[in-house]
Protein backbone atom coordinates (compact mmCIF):
# COMPACT_ATOMS: atom_id res chain seq x y z
CA UNK A 1 0.00 0.00 0.00
CA UNK A 2 1.28 3.47 -0.88
CA UNK A 3 0.70 6.43 1.38
CA UNK A 4 0.70 10.10 0.47
CA UNK A 5 2.35 12.60 2.76
CA UNK A 6 -0.05 15.54 2.95
CA UNK A 7 1.54 17.74 5.54
CA UNK A 8 4.75 17.83 7.51
CA UNK A 9 6.46 19.78 10.25
CA UNK A 10 9.58 19.53 12.25
CA UNK A 11 10.97 21.41 15.21
CA UNK A 12 14.63 20.53 15.26
CA UNK A 13 18.13 21.94 15.74
CA UNK A 14 17.81 23.47 12.26
CA UNK A 15 14.61 25.32 13.05
CA UNK A 16 10.88 24.96 13.20
CA UNK A 17 9.20 24.90 9.85
CA UNK A 18 7.94 22.72 7.07
CA UNK A 19 10.42 23.45 4.28
CA UNK A 20 14.16 23.43 3.78
CA UNK A 21 14.56 26.38 1.45
CA UNK A 22 16.88 28.20 3.79
CA UNK A 23 18.38 25.62 6.04
CA UNK A 24 20.61 27.41 8.55
CA UNK A 25 23.96 26.01 9.64
CA UNK A 26 23.33 24.20 12.86
CA UNK A 27 24.91 25.58 16.02
CA UNK A 28 25.96 23.17 18.70
CA UNK A 29 25.40 24.01 22.31
CA UNK A 30 28.72 23.63 24.03
CA UNK A 31 28.84 23.77 27.79
CA UNK A 32 31.72 21.40 28.21
CA UNK A 33 29.52 18.65 26.84
CA UNK A 34 28.38 19.33 23.30
CA UNK A 35 24.84 18.64 22.14
CA UNK A 36 22.24 19.67 19.60
CA UNK A 37 19.20 21.64 20.73
CA UNK A 38 16.02 22.62 18.96
CA UNK A 39 15.45 26.09 17.63
CA UNK A 40 11.99 26.57 19.03
CA UNK A 41 9.22 28.76 17.59
CA UNK A 42 9.39 32.33 18.89
CA UNK A 43 5.83 32.21 20.22
CA UNK A 44 3.85 29.14 21.08
CA UNK A 45 0.72 31.11 21.91
CA UNK A 46 -0.17 31.44 18.25
CA UNK A 47 -0.50 27.71 17.90
CA UNK A 48 -1.26 26.39 21.41
CA UNK A 49 -4.01 27.71 23.68
CA UNK A 50 -2.22 29.81 26.37
CA UNK A 51 -4.38 28.32 29.13
CA UNK A 52 -2.94 24.91 28.26
CA UNK A 53 0.66 26.06 27.78
CA UNK A 54 1.23 26.98 31.41
CA UNK A 55 1.70 23.39 32.55
CA UNK A 56 3.59 22.15 29.52
CA UNK A 57 7.19 21.03 29.59
CA UNK A 58 9.44 21.69 26.61
CA UNK A 59 8.82 18.26 25.08
CA UNK A 60 5.10 18.89 25.20
CA UNK A 61 5.44 22.31 23.59
CA UNK A 62 7.72 21.02 20.86
CA UNK A 63 5.65 17.92 20.19
CA UNK A 64 2.24 19.53 20.32
CA UNK A 65 3.25 22.62 18.33
CA UNK A 66 4.84 20.43 15.67
CA UNK A 67 1.69 18.30 15.45
CA UNK A 68 -0.58 21.34 15.17
CA UNK A 69 1.67 23.04 12.57
CA UNK A 70 1.63 19.80 10.61
CA UNK A 71 -2.17 19.63 10.59
CA UNK A 72 -2.25 23.25 9.44
CA UNK A 73 0.22 22.45 6.68
CA UNK A 74 -2.01 19.58 5.54
CA UNK A 75 -5.09 21.82 5.85
CA UNK A 76 -6.64 19.11 7.97
CA UNK A 77 -8.77 19.98 10.98
CA UNK A 78 -9.45 16.53 12.32
CA UNK A 79 -7.32 13.46 11.73
CA UNK A 80 -8.97 10.05 12.06
CA UNK A 81 -6.19 8.78 14.31
CA UNK A 82 -3.18 10.04 16.24
CA UNK A 83 -0.07 7.91 16.71
CA UNK A 84 3.24 8.95 18.24
CA UNK A 85 6.63 7.49 18.99
CA UNK A 86 9.03 8.69 21.67
CA UNK A 87 12.26 7.41 23.16
CA UNK A 88 11.99 8.83 26.66
CA UNK A 89 8.70 10.72 26.52
CA UNK A 90 8.51 13.85 28.61
CA UNK A 91 11.82 13.08 30.28
CA UNK A 92 12.05 16.47 32.01
CA UNK A 93 8.89 15.56 33.92
CA UNK A 94 10.07 12.07 34.89
CA UNK A 95 13.40 13.53 35.99
CA UNK A 96 11.63 16.22 38.00
CA UNK A 97 9.34 13.73 39.74
CA UNK A 98 12.19 11.32 40.50
CA UNK A 99 14.40 14.05 41.97
CA UNK A 100 11.52 15.48 43.93
CA UNK A 101 10.46 12.15 45.43
CA UNK A 102 14.03 11.52 46.57
CA UNK A 103 14.67 15.04 47.88
CA UNK A 104 11.32 15.36 49.64
CA UNK A 105 11.40 11.81 50.95
CA UNK A 106 8.12 11.03 49.18
CA UNK A 107 6.21 13.83 50.87
CA UNK A 108 4.19 16.66 49.31
CA UNK A 109 4.90 15.85 45.70
CA UNK A 110 3.45 17.93 42.90
CA UNK A 111 1.32 15.65 40.72
CA UNK A 112 1.82 17.48 37.41
CA UNK A 113 5.25 16.05 36.50
CA UNK A 114 3.98 12.53 37.29
CA UNK A 115 0.93 12.96 35.07
CA UNK A 116 3.00 14.35 32.23
CA UNK A 117 5.69 11.70 32.51
CA UNK A 118 3.19 9.20 31.09
CA UNK A 119 4.46 8.34 27.62
CA UNK A 120 1.18 8.91 25.82
CA UNK A 121 0.78 12.43 27.22
CA UNK A 122 1.35 14.14 23.89
CA UNK A 123 -0.83 11.91 21.72
CA UNK A 124 -3.65 12.29 24.21
CA UNK A 125 -3.16 16.05 24.65
CA UNK A 126 -3.44 16.49 20.90
CA UNK A 127 -6.60 14.36 20.93
CA UNK A 128 -7.95 16.42 23.82
CA UNK A 129 -7.31 19.71 22.01
CA UNK A 130 -8.90 18.48 18.79
CA UNK A 131 -11.61 16.43 20.52
CA UNK A 132 -10.42 13.53 18.40
CA UNK A 133 -12.05 10.30 19.61
CA UNK A 134 -10.36 8.08 17.04
CA UNK A 135 -7.66 5.46 17.45
CA UNK A 136 -4.79 6.75 19.58
CA UNK A 137 -1.52 5.07 20.44
CA UNK A 138 2.08 5.65 21.51
CA UNK A 139 5.21 3.56 21.07
CA UNK A 140 8.10 4.21 23.41
CA UNK A 141 11.67 3.44 24.25
CA UNK A 142 14.69 2.26 22.35
CA UNK A 143 14.02 0.27 19.24
CA UNK A 144 11.50 0.85 16.52
CA UNK A 145 9.13 3.26 18.23
CA UNK A 146 8.60 5.91 15.54
CA UNK A 147 8.84 3.18 12.91
CA UNK A 148 6.05 1.17 14.57
CA UNK A 149 3.94 4.32 14.73
CA UNK A 150 4.33 4.60 10.95
CA UNK A 151 3.58 0.91 10.44
CA UNK A 152 0.51 1.24 12.66
CA UNK A 153 -0.73 4.17 10.54
CA UNK A 154 -0.12 2.22 7.37
CA UNK A 155 -2.20 -0.70 8.67
CA UNK A 156 -5.03 1.57 9.84
CA UNK A 157 -5.24 3.08 6.38
CA UNK A 158 -4.96 -0.19 4.50
CA UNK A 159 -7.65 -1.72 6.75
CA UNK A 160 -9.92 1.25 5.97
CA UNK A 161 -10.00 2.14 9.65
CA UNK A 162 -8.72 5.62 8.85
CA UNK A 163 -7.97 7.74 5.85
CA UNK A 164 -5.97 10.59 7.41
CA UNK A 165 -3.56 9.74 10.21
CA UNK A 166 -1.41 12.14 12.20
CA UNK A 167 1.87 10.38 12.98
CA UNK A 168 4.86 11.86 14.69
CA UNK A 169 7.72 11.55 17.11
CA UNK A 170 9.36 13.70 19.75
CA UNK A 171 12.28 13.56 22.12
CA UNK A 172 13.73 16.30 24.29
CA UNK A 173 17.20 16.48 25.80
CA UNK A 174 17.67 17.53 29.40
CA UNK A 175 20.84 18.32 31.29
CA UNK A 176 20.79 15.26 33.53
CA UNK A 177 20.31 13.02 30.53
CA UNK A 178 23.22 14.61 28.63
CA UNK A 179 25.46 13.96 31.62
CA UNK A 180 24.30 10.35 31.81
CA UNK A 181 24.68 9.77 28.05
CA UNK A 182 28.26 11.04 28.12
CA UNK A 183 29.05 8.94 31.17
CA UNK A 184 27.65 5.91 29.36
CA UNK A 185 30.26 6.58 26.68
CA UNK A 186 27.78 6.86 23.85
CA UNK A 187 29.52 9.82 22.27
CA UNK A 188 33.13 8.87 22.63
CA UNK A 189 33.64 8.80 18.85
CA UNK A 190 33.02 12.50 18.67
CA UNK A 191 36.22 13.42 20.41
CA UNK A 192 38.32 11.46 17.95
CA UNK A 193 37.18 13.51 14.99
CA UNK A 194 38.01 17.02 14.05
CA UNK A 195 35.37 17.35 11.38
CA UNK A 196 31.68 17.72 12.17
CA UNK A 197 29.99 14.66 13.63
CA UNK A 198 26.42 13.62 14.21
CA UNK A 199 27.56 11.44 17.08
CA UNK A 200 26.24 13.83 19.70
CA UNK A 201 23.06 13.94 21.77
CA UNK A 202 20.21 15.45 19.78
CA UNK A 203 16.51 16.13 20.03
CA UNK A 204 13.52 17.12 17.98
CA UNK A 205 9.93 16.60 16.97
CA UNK A 206 8.51 15.81 13.56
CA UNK A 207 4.94 15.13 12.49
CA UNK A 208 3.29 13.92 9.30
CA UNK A 209 -0.21 13.62 7.91
CA UNK A 210 -0.50 10.38 5.97
CA UNK A 211 -3.37 9.58 3.67
CA UNK A 212 -4.46 7.06 1.05
CA UNK A 213 -5.69 9.82 -1.27
CA UNK A 214 -3.36 11.41 -3.78
CA UNK A 215 -3.45 15.13 -4.49
CA UNK A 216 -1.28 17.69 -6.25
CA UNK A 217 -0.02 19.29 -3.09
CA UNK A 218 1.42 16.08 -1.62
CA UNK A 219 5.00 16.25 -0.41
CA UNK A 220 5.91 12.72 -1.40
CA UNK A 221 4.69 9.17 -1.57
CA UNK A 222 5.76 6.57 0.97
CA UNK A 223 6.16 3.50 -1.21
CA UNK A 224 7.29 1.11 1.46
CA UNK A 225 8.83 0.73 4.87
CA UNK A 226 10.33 -2.07 6.87
CA UNK A 227 11.93 -2.71 10.21
CA UNK A 228 14.69 -5.28 9.89
CA UNK A 229 15.65 -7.09 13.07
CA UNK A 230 19.04 -8.53 12.19
CA UNK A 231 22.56 -7.17 11.93
CA UNK A 232 23.51 -9.97 9.61
CA UNK A 233 22.70 -9.82 5.94
CA UNK A 234 21.61 -6.19 6.10
CA UNK A 235 22.51 -5.54 2.47
CA UNK A 236 20.68 -8.72 1.40
CA UNK A 237 17.67 -7.56 3.38
CA UNK A 238 17.77 -4.18 1.68
CA UNK A 239 17.98 -5.80 -1.76
CA UNK A 240 15.00 -7.96 -0.87
CA UNK A 241 13.10 -4.89 0.31
CA UNK A 242 13.81 -3.07 -2.97
CA UNK A 243 12.79 -6.16 -4.94
CA UNK A 244 9.46 -6.15 -3.16
CA UNK A 245 8.82 -2.66 -4.50
CA UNK A 246 10.23 -3.50 -7.96
CA UNK A 247 13.09 -1.06 -7.91
CA UNK A 248 16.74 -1.85 -8.50
CA UNK A 249 19.41 -0.42 -6.26
CA UNK A 250 21.03 1.35 -9.22
CA UNK A 251 17.80 3.29 -9.71
CA UNK A 252 17.79 4.69 -6.19
CA UNK A 253 18.66 8.35 -6.65
CA UNK A 254 19.72 9.11 -3.08
CA UNK A 255 20.29 7.13 0.08
CA UNK A 256 19.86 9.00 3.35
CA UNK A 257 21.99 7.22 5.93
CA UNK A 258 22.00 7.24 9.71
CA UNK A 259 25.81 7.35 9.81
CA UNK A 260 27.59 9.24 12.59
CA UNK A 261 30.07 10.97 10.29
CA UNK A 262 31.25 11.08 6.70
CA UNK A 263 33.82 8.34 7.16
CA UNK A 264 31.67 5.72 5.44
CA UNK A 265 34.24 2.95 5.15
CA UNK A 266 34.68 2.78 8.88
CA UNK A 267 30.98 2.94 9.63
CA UNK A 268 28.71 0.01 10.28
CA UNK A 269 26.98 0.88 7.03
CA UNK A 270 29.97 -0.06 4.88
CA UNK A 271 28.37 -3.14 3.31
CA UNK A 272 25.16 -1.20 2.63
CA UNK A 273 27.05 1.49 0.75
CA UNK A 274 28.46 -1.05 -1.69
CA UNK A 275 24.91 -1.65 -2.87
CA UNK A 276 24.58 1.92 -4.09
CA UNK A 277 27.56 2.92 -6.27
CA UNK A 278 25.33 5.11 -8.45
CA UNK A 279 23.33 6.84 -5.74
CA UNK A 280 23.90 10.05 -3.86
CA UNK A 281 24.89 9.28 -0.30
CA UNK A 282 23.48 11.69 2.28
CA UNK A 283 23.47 11.89 6.05
CA UNK A 284 21.08 13.59 8.44
CA UNK A 285 22.65 13.32 11.89
CA UNK A 286 24.85 16.35 11.30
CA UNK A 287 21.64 18.37 11.45
CA UNK A 288 19.91 16.78 14.44
CA UNK A 289 22.36 14.64 16.40
CA UNK A 290 21.34 11.23 17.69
CA UNK A 291 18.19 10.36 19.58
CA UNK A 292 15.81 7.45 19.77
CA UNK A 293 13.35 8.88 17.26
CA UNK A 294 15.79 10.50 14.82
CA UNK A 295 14.23 8.46 11.99
CA UNK A 296 11.36 10.96 12.09
CA UNK A 297 13.76 13.81 11.35
CA UNK A 298 15.24 11.76 8.48
CA UNK A 299 11.77 11.22 7.06
CA UNK A 300 10.99 14.92 7.34
CA UNK A 301 14.25 15.78 5.56
CA UNK A 302 13.76 13.25 2.76
CA UNK A 303 10.16 14.33 2.22
CA UNK A 304 11.30 17.91 1.93
CA UNK A 305 14.11 17.07 -0.49
CA UNK A 306 11.65 15.37 -2.81
CA UNK A 307 9.17 18.23 -2.66
CA UNK A 308 11.72 21.01 -3.11
CA UNK A 309 13.95 18.99 -5.45
CA UNK A 310 16.95 20.37 -3.60
CA UNK A 311 19.53 18.59 -1.52
CA UNK A 312 21.11 20.80 1.15
CA UNK A 313 24.85 20.90 0.40
CA UNK A 314 25.91 20.14 3.94
CA UNK A 315 24.30 16.71 4.06
CA UNK A 316 25.94 15.35 0.92
CA UNK A 317 28.68 12.80 1.51
CA UNK A 318 28.99 11.63 -2.09
CA UNK A 319 27.33 13.10 -5.12
CA UNK A 320 27.12 10.21 -7.58
CA UNK A 321 23.84 10.86 -9.28
CA UNK A 322 22.67 13.81 -11.37
CA UNK A 323 19.45 12.22 -12.63
CA UNK A 324 16.03 13.51 -11.69
CA UNK A 325 15.55 13.46 -7.94
CA UNK A 326 12.59 11.13 -7.91
CA UNK A 327 13.20 8.77 -5.01
CA UNK A 328 15.04 8.49 -1.69
CA UNK A 329 15.81 5.46 0.45
CA UNK A 330 16.33 6.03 4.17
CA UNK A 331 18.51 3.50 5.98
CA UNK A 332 18.79 4.12 9.71
CA UNK A 333 20.21 1.71 12.26
CA UNK A 334 18.20 2.15 15.40
CA UNK A 335 18.79 0.30 18.61
CA UNK A 336 20.04 -3.22 19.16
CA UNK A 337 19.88 -5.09 15.87
CA UNK A 338 17.07 -3.08 14.29
CA UNK A 339 17.34 -1.09 11.07
CA UNK A 340 14.60 1.10 9.63
CA UNK A 341 14.03 1.39 5.88
CA UNK A 342 11.77 3.95 4.22
CA UNK A 343 11.35 4.22 0.45
CA UNK A 344 9.93 7.53 -0.74
CA UNK A 345 9.00 8.68 -4.21
CA UNK A 346 8.22 12.07 -5.64
Amino acid sequence: MELYIKGINSISPVGSFDNIDNLPEVKLTDEGLKYYSCIEPAVYKEIINPVLIRRMSRAMKIGIASALFCLKDAKLEMPDSIITGTGLGCVEDSDKFLVSLIENEEKMLNPTPFIQSTHNTISSQIALMLKCHGYNSTYAGRGACFETAMLDALMLISDNEASNVLVGAYDELIQNQIKILYRLGQFRNYKKLNNISGNLPGEGAAFFVLSDKQSETDYAKLVGMEIISSDNYLSENISEFLNKYSIESKNINSVLLGVENTNLENSNYSDVINLFPFSNLLWFKRLCGEYMTDSAFALWLATNILKSQKIPENIIIRKNNTNALDNILIVNKISGNQTALFLLKK
Partner: peptide
Protein backbone atom coordinates in the same frame (compact mmCIF):
# COMPACT_ATOMS: atom_id res chain seq x y z
CA UNK B 1 21.08 1.09 37.08
CA UNK B 2 20.11 3.82 34.62
CA UNK B 3 20.79 1.76 31.49
CA UNK B 4 17.40 0.07 31.88
CA UNK B 5 15.42 3.31 32.20
CA UNK B 6 13.66 3.50 28.84
CA UNK B 7 10.54 1.45 28.13
CA UNK B 8 12.19 -0.40 25.25
CA UNK B 9 14.90 -2.01 27.36
CA UNK B 10 12.65 -4.64 28.94
CA UNK B 11 11.23 -5.52 25.52
CA UNK B 12 14.70 -5.98 24.05
CA UNK B 13 15.71 -8.02 27.06
CA UNK B 14 12.66 -10.30 26.78
CA UNK B 15 13.25 -10.72 23.01
CA UNK B 16 16.85 -11.74 23.71
CA UNK B 17 15.87 -14.23 26.40
CA UNK B 18 13.32 -15.76 24.01
CA UNK B 19 16.07 -15.98 21.34
CA UNK B 20 13.75 -14.07 19.06
CA UNK B 21 15.21 -12.90 15.74
CA UNK B 22 12.02 -11.20 14.58
CA UNK B 23 10.37 -7.86 15.04
CA UNK B 24 9.83 -6.36 18.49
CA UNK B 25 8.42 -3.09 19.71
CA UNK B 26 7.13 -1.38 22.84
CA UNK B 27 3.78 0.25 23.54
CA UNK B 28 3.30 2.73 26.35
CA UNK B 29 -0.20 4.13 26.64
CA UNK B 30 -0.43 4.04 30.44
Amino acid sequence: NIATHDCGESTQNIANKLNLNGFYTTISTA
